[in-house]
Design a protein around this nucleic acid. Structure first.
Lengths: 220, 220
DNA sequence: AACTTAAACGGACCTTGGTCCGGATCGTAA
DNA sequence: TTACGATCCGGACCAAGGTCCGTTTAAGTT
């Protein structure tokens, strides 16, 4: 039933990935046949050019393929799917950031106290994301629709209101957004199904989070 | 340029939405032609049946249309797109939850102190989401891939490590997940582009969030 | 250099989301 | 009841993502 010869045994970018955790120049695909590596590069370059010229919407798999003078199948074998291609494009700046906080200068890199590093980290991510919004969103089609859905808005309003009563002097709207983000269905799925955390843990994490977030400022 | 007669002037579920903010039975579409309302109901029913029989993957727009004995175009006019249809299916339980925390009994509904209501709220959302994961995810295709992306994992590992040094006795993994969720590109896009918040506000919200989350417990 | 094999290639093909528009229906007003 | 305009319906049509498989080729092996 599963012994059929899968046409594309490499639906995902296979390598150049796990090593990232330990900090990775991880140049590119290490063990690719010469032609494969060449085509991979051409595809990425073609995709980048297409984005520059016609925006992310212009990045059609066929367009990329023909711009790189390559068959369509090749694109899919190399990157799995459209999202995979987009993520590969994003990878470069991802690696950059990673290098910065793993080995760069403080306060992002090691050397500064943890709290300061954490602050710097968030701000770095914030601005980096802001730059490549178009690409980031294209890789997550309609990820932002959930925020404008009326039901979601209702939840946000409710949480904001509760927060206002508890910590009136905070930016309750954004705090609410954060709290809700931690209840995102996709996140719950990831945590329970892929990382096998029991619901009880999520539940107590929520309670703890609420406690931390609503704790009034201690006397300095 | 934009005066061309749009074929589907109602790309999104037009009504039965804004009222949600004030609590809404908002029965269904109020002003639909009789046949339209009938078809809408048949489509929702057909979709639900298809899900029950073949899982969410079996919910093809054509399948739903023919199961409801209706043309394909009708499905799109009514629900805009596939996601719209799925969201409409989700809407029911969304309304239920909303009714609960807006007018239901404490601790979810009014009557309990805000802090308790907030706790109960999160737990309610948590379990409700857990039930309809399949549907929720189908409405947000590949929303969960971002969590397993190696770059994301690296960020998570890093933040977790920093947190361990600051608040060793917390569930740092989940706390990290929450912090990262507040930096999600889609969220940033929503906040800056759709709700027009300046980056500076996000930035200071991040700093504040970090401060709150890492604050050590006051002496009770 | 000839041989072998696993891997890569290309592009026809399939599926499915989404669009268009001529014709059927509903609701209403005379 | 009839007429009429707004709304809706249906299903052919299109584009783009994704799959398949026969053919080609890189890279060892003898």
């Amino acid at each position: 039933m599963s012994s059929a010869p899968q046409p594309f045994p490499t639906p995902q970018e296979p390598s150049d990935a796990p090593r990232l955790l330990e900090l990775g120049p991880a140049p590119e695909e290490p063990c690719l046949r010469a032609d494969a590596a060449r085509n991979r590069a051409r595809l990425l370059e073609a995709a980048a050019r297409l984005i520059a010229e016609h925006g992310v919407a212009g990045v059609t798999m066929e367009a990329v393929a023909s711009a790189a003078k390559v068959g369509k199948g090749t694109v899919f074998r190399r990157f799995g799917d459209r999202t995979g291609l987009l993520m590969a494009l994003l990878d470069h700046s991802g690696r950059q950031l990673q290098a910065d906080f793993l080995g760069g200068p403080p306060p992002l890199g090691p050397g500064a106290p943890p709290l300061e590093r954490l602050r710097a980290f968030g701000i770095a991510v914030l601005y980096r994301s802001a730059e490549q919004l178009e690409l980031q969103l294209a890789a997550q089609p309609e990820a932002c629709r959930r925020f404008s859905h009326p039901a979601t808005q209702a939840l946000r309003t409710h949480v904001t209101m509760l927060l206002r009563q508890i910590v009136p002097d905070a930016d309750c709207e954004l705090l609410a957004q954060t709290l809700l983000a931690s209840l995102d269905p996709a996140l719950i799925h990831h945590l329970t199904r892929q990382r096998h955390m029991p619901m009880a843990r999520l539940e107590s994490a929520w309670v703890d989070l609420v406690a931390r977030v609503t704790r009034t400022r201690p006397p300095v």
